[in-house]
Simulated assay, not measured.
Amino acid sequence: MSRAVAINVGANTNTPGVRGPVWADGRFEYVPIPETEPVAEPVPTYADLDLATDLPADVLDTPVHLDPEFPEYPYGERYSYGDPHGVKARPLADLATGDYAFFYATLATVDEPASWQAPEWGAYLIGGFELARDPVTGAAYSDLPPADRELFASNAHVKRETFDAEVLLAGDPDGSALYETALPLSGRAAGTDANRIVTELSSDSGKGPWWRRPLRFDAEATAELLAIRRNDRFTDCFYRD
């Protein structure tokens, strides 16, 4: 049975200074972080993405670090993800073919929050990969056959002048997606409060800045999380019927 790890991605109030929006019907906009390293291949800017998010004018011409990469998203070609930071790379590297990597972001609540939304902002699952192959460590990447390396050719870390990923993930197109609606991880009172997906299904306590930490799910919890996501059962994020 499949296991899963969920990690924080996307724009925040530090970089580039705003969060992506989430609306009362669950729709949201994924806003990537800026690219901070020199690149060997062209990458899009915020202006190229033509986002609805009200971004600061001085960042519009900034290149973006489009990671995770989704084919449904502008300039995305494959389901790929890379990470240079051990705190996220290590739990991701422990996954295997058929396991799941979920991606969550902190999103700003637009207008009056729905009954399942935290006011001001909250953490939400925005997408996920069913892994098409075992994770590839940064050390093993250079030894991959050309056909296998092609799986990661459009990843943001591969496009950097200096390849720096400690882990690379490839998603199976049949089991991977940038979601159309976001699934809440925060409680309904405040973005800093964790709901039961975090406190009961994941191995995290939900205390402290849980929205910055990797969240691990065992096989049973992963199956329940997938069912909640599949059925858009927002109430199941807070309690069982």
Rank of each mutant, 00 (worst) to 15 (best):
Ala4Ser: 08
Arg216His: 08
Arg19Lys: 13
Val167Phe: 11
His65Gln: 12
Val87Trp: 12
Val110Asp: 08
Ala177Ile: 08
Ala57Met: 14
Ala140Pro: 06
Gly82Ser: 12
Ala221Ile: 10
Gly191Glu: 04
Val5Lys: 01
Leu55Ile: 15
Cys237Pro: 02
Ala177His: 10
Asn155Arg: 03
Tyr73Ala: 11
Arg27Phe: 02
Phe102Met: 04
Leu183Gly: 00
Glu224Arg: 13
Gln117Val: 08
Pro34Ala: 15
Ala40His: 11
Asp241Pro: 13
Gly76Phe: 14
Trp23His: 13
Arg196Ala: 11
Phe163Ser: 06
Leu66Lys: 07
Arg188Gln: 14
Val87Pro: 01
Ala165Ser: 15
Val167Asp: 03
Leu178Ser: 12
Pro56Thr: 09
Pro16Trp: 07
Arg133Asp: 00
Ala11His: 07
Ala139Trp: 05
Thr45Met: 14
Asp143Arg: 10
Ala170Tyr: 03
Arg27Ile: 02
Thr192Tyr: 06
Thr15Gly: 05
Ala118Ile: 02
Asp61Ile: 01
Tyr75Trp: 15
Glu77Trp: 13
Tyr124His: 13
Gly128Val: 06
Val158Met: 08
Ala11Thr: 09
Phe217Gln: 03
Gly17Met: 09
Ala153Gly: 06
Asp58Glu: 15
Val22Ser: 02
Tyr179Asp: 00
Asp174Gly: 06
Pro84Lys: 15
Tyr100Lys: 01
Ala194Arg: 02
Thr137Ile: 09
Phe238Thr: 05
Ala89Ile: 01
Ala47Pro: 04
Arg229Asp: 01
Ala40Pro: 06
Asp232Leu: 13
Arg229Ser: 01
Ser2Cys: 12
Pro119Trp: 09
Thr222Asp: 08
Pro184Gln: 11
Ser80Glu: 04
Ala108Glu: 14
Pro184Gly: 10
Asp54Tyr: 11
Leu178Arg: 11
Leu225Ser: 07
Arg78Phe: 11
Glu120Lys: 12
Trp116Ala: 03
Val158Leu: 09
Ala165Phe: 10
Arg3Asp: 00
Tyr124Ser: 00
Pro119Phe: 10
Tyr46Ala: 10
Gly26Glu: 09
Gln117Asn: 08
Gly17Thr: 09
Ser154Arg: 06
Pro173Asn: 11
Arg196Cys: 10
Pro113Ile: 09
Ala147Gln: 11
Ala219Pro: 02
Asn8Val: 10
Gly138Pro: 02
Pro68Asp: 13
Val9Trp: 01
Thr162Arg: 13
Ala96Tyr: 10
